[in-house]
Design a binder for these strands. Structure first.
Lengths: 123, 123
DNA sequence: CCCTTCCTCAACCAGATGGTTGACAAAGCG
DNA sequence: CGCTTTGTCAACCATCTGGTTGAGGAAGGG
């Protein structure tokens, strides 16, 4: 469970139940029992989901007597949107350029002389 | 493997290798062997990763003799960004509002009356 | 024709994941 | 003080996942 932050965030949101939790928390903090009520799984299962969201930094838990109000930390979203936007833009730019040039089959282009230029792949 | 589209996309990008593949494909199409070259895992493993990306709709495969050039389909990113933006905005709006109202502890809150986010202190 | 290149399919394995039940600590209520 | 509410921890289980190896199909190059 020592994945990089970006992987943890994507992974956390890859589950419908967890996305629903995030969606509900967007409109206000809530406790575990409140959050678990709508689903037909055990409270412990929801607690595990919250743990995953917490490990991803998407959520924090406060203290109020025996209650632990869960709070959404929306800033972490930026991690994802930045990554996405970066490559989306690159791909779109390339698409437009290719639109200009027209579908030109690069017959004399090396199929891959050096891939290295792209190796600067930061996660 | 019948997860919803959104889950598939998030899940696909939850792996560093697959994000790297996407990053590299953003700058141009490539074949499996080209894509697999930099990693020290088997070609089959990379093929599996591509399958996941394909199932998520992030990537398509063409045909060129025995080669299957892989192409990035960046539009699918929108699925994610739309979801993210929606709840990010909601959370941010709430944060600003809460900034105005000051931290007000809702002591008489109902244990989650279905929808109403009116947690007792709307105005 | 054979042989090489490129890719996929199938079987297998270790570890992560999502769920269960049961026990239990901690805070407040009667 | 006892009991209820709230949440966590632990063990267990089935399935998914990311990797491996091995076999094999399809398309060209000699």
């Amino acid at each position: 469970m020592a994945a990089d932050p970006l992987s943890r965030v994507f992974s956390a949101l890859a589950d419908p139940t967890r996305r629903d939790l995030v969606a509900r928390l967007a409109s206000g903090d809530a406790t575990l029992s409140q959050l678990a009520e709508p689903y037909d799984v055990s409270v412990q299962a929801v607690s595990k989901h919250l743990r995953v969201l917490q490990d991803a930094g998407l959520v924090t838990k406060g203290r109020d007597a025996q209650r632990r109000p869960v709070h959404l930390e929306a800033e972490v979203f930026d991690l994802m949107t930045k990554w996405i936007e970066r490559y989306r833009r690159e791909a779109e730019a390339r698409y437009r350029r290719l639109d200009d040039v027209l579908r030109d089959l690069p017959a004399d282009v090396d199929p891959l002389p050096p891939a290295p230029p792209t190796t600067g792949a930061p996660s």
